[in-house]
Design a binder for these strands. Structure first.
Lengths: 333, 333
DNA sequence: TTGTATGCGTTATCAA
DNA sequence: TTGATAACGCATACAA
């Protein structure tokens, strides 16, 4: 009588089912896992009891005896920024192909949070992949021992796997494209970025100098990574440099934001100001004319990151791999 | 000498570290978990050995002893379709607030795959949430016993938690908005959808009839859920009904696709054809004029789903909860 | 076909 | 402060 009411809140185990079904817990295991060696009749009975008791195998108990299933943690700054879904999709797909599971977490661009997240997540998964804004030294106390694949950050101590994006080549290609169209007064919208903040604007200025463009630091504006940020950047740069006839943005989000601002201000694109974006997001196809951009295969980026992790998990540290953007000329230049 | 080379591929355990450090495995546990009751000197030594041996605690061993960490599985048809990232963000955020982890998986719109995915994922998590295209009966063999929160599907057997979207109210509001602007020849772009395929077009036709619009089945076109699909729908409906002056789409993706097609064909929006979308995606703001739409709080949708799961995990089946869209009048009507 | 005994890696209890 | 011992829930030899 007190056998059903008891239970309180404890988990139902294999043994509970066994007791209720009047068999050994071993028989229950066999029934649940459907490996022959069991009388169909007993199996049916056991299964019924199991359902009755709402029995669910513990993934921990199971994982302990056959540690097969690999789980990786995926960390991104933001799930909604349209850059990341494609990257995430690439990771999930590549992981799925290996029968891995992916725990997704977002730092919301919060650096301290990134660290605590890494610590807790790192304890629950076999490896971590994603965008990390800290140096290896800063990361170390939080992810000690956890295999790490870092995306879009220059190799640091060289102890982690790395997938780099050749933004330098991208900026160069975009800039030279604009120059070849006769532009000489070119602005750049950079973004606040945790990693390698200087490399992009440095490349921009280096290439400009090499082509003897009349440009200096003042032609670079660091915007918040959003459409609104792009709008502000456009207005600011245009006010600062009325002679500006073109601009290159570090991502499509701000590029589109700049485009919208231009439209609002009655500035014709590309006639009065050409725009080159970066990333190749599909939002670039929605504006009219569509955005010229440095297209990056974000899905591939995710696949590469997983591949790096795969090698890491296999015990070998792979050399950094680099993914390059390619120029996609559309309507805004 | 053979002590380091041995290792083969086995996992390093607490006991391995203990042996190497010349202490009991219990002491190692204490050192790792940093709970006092240990000589700082021993702790340091043990920690050193642990690092040396690249020891990592097993989440299974740990989970077995204190099953605290909750992990839920999130299933969506597609990660890239701009509807889902916001929903996913809502789920991840609400889960994070409860210190839950989220394993994200995508069915890629593949129904058989959905089932196998559900089975394997269901074994690894404490509960599942997301978009499921099958009936409860079809689901049963694959997710038996797993707490389920189903989004955007009418309650079926009533054994699972459910978050519904009141698309009926949405369609009605959109349609009446168009009617109030004087439109009478209105087309509808529906989408192939697993769940409740009929409810939307039925509502559309019911409301049309109530207002005595000259409309029948032929004014409904079922499109593929993509911009291209929306384009085809626009062309088809317009050819079929030259008198059409407005249309309502079941989601912004196809609505924007229709808009682009209109532009390509030289049809002025909204002058020659008004368009109402559904979902309130940010892509609707990129076109000019911006899309009038039935805005849905997708982030909230995710939060509600997690809340439902929370109750389910607490042992009680919550009543279905409904989320309603609201009309956002912008430029295309 | 079924049951018994053992071990997986960890933490908790309690005695030393 | 440390160590022996006992769980935790499951699967797998091996014996019955």
């Amino acid at each position: 009588m007190a056998e059903k009411t008891a239970g309180a809140d404890k988990r139902v185990t294999l043994r509970d089912v066994a007791r209720a079904a009047g068999v050994s817990h071993q028989t229950v295991s066999r029934a649940i896992n459907g490996k022959g060696e069991i009388d169909p009749e007993t199996q049916r009975r056991v299964l019924d009891v199991a359902r009755e008791l709402r029995y669910r195998p513990s993934r921990f108990g199971r994982g302990l005896v056959r540690p097969d299933v690999v789980t990786i943690g995926l960390v991104v700054p933001d799930v909604v920024n349209p850059f990341y879904p494609e990257f995430i999709a690439g990771v999930i797909e590549a992981a799925g192909a290996r029968d891995w599971q992916v725990v997704v977490a977002s730092t919301e661009g919060n650096r301290p949070r990134e660290l605590t997240l890494l610590r807790s997540l790192g304890q629950q998964v076999d490896a971590l992949v994603g965008y990390f804004s800290h140096t290896d030294a800063e990361l170390e106390p939080y992810v000690a021992g956890v295999p790490l694949a870092i995306v879009d950050r220059a190799p640091d101590t060289g102890i982690h796997a790395v997938v780099r994006i050749d933004s330098e080549a991208g900026i160069r290609a975009g800039l030279e494209h604009l120059i070849s169209r006769g532009h000489r007064h070119i602005g750049m919208i950079d973004c606040v970025s945790y990693c390698d903040p200087a490399v992009r604007s440095r490349t921009f200025l280096d290439v400009s100098r090499a082509h003897r463009l009349p440009i200096d630091d003042n032609w670079v504006f660091v915007a918040e990574e959003s459409m609104a940020g792009g709008g502000i950047a456009f207005e600011t740069l245009r006010t600062r440099h009325p002679a500006m006839t073109a601009m290159i943005a570090f991502n499509d989000l701000v590029a589109v934001g700049a485009f919208q601002a231009a439209r609002r201000l009655g500035v014709a694109i590309p006639a009065e100001c050409a725009i080159v974006g970066f990333d190749g997001l599909s939002i670039g196809e929605l504006i009219e004319p569509p955005l010229t951009t440095l297209h990056l295969d974000k899905r591939r980026l995710g696949e590469l990151a997983v591949a790096q992790l795969d090698q890491l998990l296999a015990g070998e540290l792979p050399p950094p791999v680099v993914l390059s953007p390619h120029l996609l000329v559309r309507g805004t230049t």
